[in-house]
Simulated assay, not measured.
Amino acid sequence: MAFQPIVDVLDGSVFAYEALVRGADGSGAGAVMSRVTHDNRFAFDQLCRRRAVELAASLGVATRISINFMPNAVYQPEVCLGTTLAAARRAQFPIERIMFEVTEGERVEDRPHLVKILNEYKRQGFTTAIDDFGAGHSGLNLLAEFQPDVIKLDMDLVREIDASAVRRSIVECIVRLARALDISVIAEGVETKEELATLRGLGINLLQGYLLARPAFEALPEIDRSVLQPRKGGAGRRAAA
Rank of each mutant, 00 (worst) to 15 (best):
Ser13Phe: 05
Leu228Phe: 03
Ala219Arg: 09
Arg168Ile: 08
Glu172Lys: 15
Val9Cys: 10
Leu118Phe: 11
His113Phe: 12
Gly134Ile: 09
Ala16Gly: 05
Ala62Gly: 15
Phe44Met: 05
Gly134Tyr: 10
Thr83Trp: 06
Val74Gly: 03
Met70His: 12
Glu109Val: 15
Ala87Asp: 07
Pro230Arg: 03
Asp39Gly: 02
Lys232Trp: 09
Leu114Gln: 08
Ala240Ile: 10
Gln208Val: 02
Val102Ile: 14
Ala56Pro: 06
Glu218Gly: 00
Ala241Met: 05
Arg50Gly: 15
Arg50Phe: 00
His38Leu: 13
Arg123Trp: 15
Leu177Glu: 11
Val61Phe: 09
Gly234Lys: 05
Ala57Gly: 07
Asp39Lys: 13
Val14Phe: 06
Ala129Gly: 12
Ile65Asn: 07
Val108Thr: 12
Gly236Met: 05
Cys173Arg: 14
Leu212Trp: 01
Gly134Val: 09
Gly209Cys: 03
Gly189Tyr: 02
Leu118Ala: 08
Ala31Tyr: 05
Arg50Thr: 14
Ala31Ser: 12
Phe42Glu: 06
Arg35Cys: 03
Val115Cys: 07
His137Thr: 14
Arg167Cys: 07
Ile170Pro: 01
Arg89Tyr: 00
Leu202Phe: 02
Arg97Ile: 04
Val108His: 06
Leu207Tyr: 03
Pro112Val: 10
Pro77Asn: 08
Ala43Lys: 12
